[in-house]
Amino acid sequence: MPTLEALFLQLENVKVIDDSIPNSQYTPLNLSISNPDLSKIDITDSKIFEDFIENHLQKNKAKVAFGGYNEERNLYKSSLIFNDDEKEERNIHIGMDLWIKSGTSILAALDGTVHGFDFNAGKGNYGPTIILKHSFESQIFYTLYGHLSLESIENIEIGSIFKKGQKIATLGDATVNGGYSPHLHFQIIKEIKDYLGDYPGVCSKKDLEYYLGNCPNPNLLLKIH
């Protein structure tokens, strides 16, 4: 049986945000500890960070900034969610972020059903979140959509069916999305265990090998170049 990653390579035209925006209007964004520009701003201030994203988009004549898979970041240092004194710091991002304005339509990557949803409140958290369950070529896996608007989870039910490309939500702003500049956190999950409306999107170095194996690079599916 082919791996899930190999199956993803066969798929085309997978979109998770407004499908009127072509891939040619996407630009990479480096939020890792290696980017010296981030040391010049307060990245924990959502307004300052939103201006940083907007300037990056304008500079590159793009509408969407993307990246972040397997990226070590300083972005989480101000959140207790990722910095528990009794545990190793979690600072490696294991999904893909797509930075674009709040209110943007979020689409189902593939045919699926709602596995779970929740409002994961708190600074640094996902805010409103939806997880879809998919079955493809006899393989079960999940996709997570984080940092949504509150309206996105008001009238949704577990088991609801969505088709590939169907609108499932809209993006939230900093008042509900954990205090971030608006963006979608998109993540693929093979084994979800007992999680329903939540799943770790940032891990420690100690657990990195496990999470990279369980959460393949979303760009295998999205194919953004």
Rank of each mutant, 00 (worst) to 15 (best):
H134I: 07
E137G: 08
S78Q: 14
M96F: 03
H185A: 03
W99S: 04
G146V: 13
K164W: 05
G67F: 09
D37Y: 10
V114W: 02
L150H: 15
L4H: 06
S20K: 11
L148A: 09
T3L: 12
I43R: 08
G68M: 05
F141I: 15
E154N: 06
G159M: 07
G124E: 10
G122W: 11
L11Q: 10
S135Q: 13
T129I: 11
H56Y: 15
L98Y: 00
A6V: 15
K123F: 10
Y195E: 04
P216E: 04
T27V: 15
D97F: 01
W99H: 06
G165V: 06
V114P: 00
Y199H: 02
D19F: 09
I168D: 00
G68I: 03
E154R: 06
R73F: 06
N91T: 02
S79R: 05
N55M: 13
I161N: 07
Q139L: 14
L29V: 12
F52H: 15
S20F: 12
I53C: 12
N35K: 08
I106F: 01
E151P: 06
Q58K: 15
W99M: 10
Y210S: 07
K223C: 06
K101R: 14
D118E: 14
L107V: 03
F52L: 15
G179Q: 05
E191S: 13
I130S: 05
N23M: 11
L148I: 08
D18G: 07
E137M: 12
N74M: 12
L110K: 01
Y180N: 03
G112L: 02
I192C: 01
G179V: 06
N74C: 10
K123P: 06
I130Y: 05
Q187L: 04
I192K: 02
A109D: 00
F136A: 11
F162H: 06
L7V: 11
N55S: 11
D84W: 07
N74Y: 12
I43N: 10
S78N: 15
G127R: 03
H147P: 04
K61V: 13
N177F: 07
D194M: 08
T129S: 15
H115E: 03
H225F: 11
S149C: 08
L220T: 05
H147W: 10
Q166S: 11
H93R: 00
I153D: 02
L4Q: 08
H185N: 02
E151R: 10
S149H: 10
I106Q: 00
K87M: 08
I140W: 09
D118G: 11
L221E: 02
G124R: 09
L220V: 08
G201M: 01
A121M: 07
K205Q: 12
G213R: 12
V202W: 02
S138C: 13
N13Y: 09
N70G: 07
F186V: 01
D194S: 12
I53E: 12
L171R: 01
N217P: 05
F141S: 14
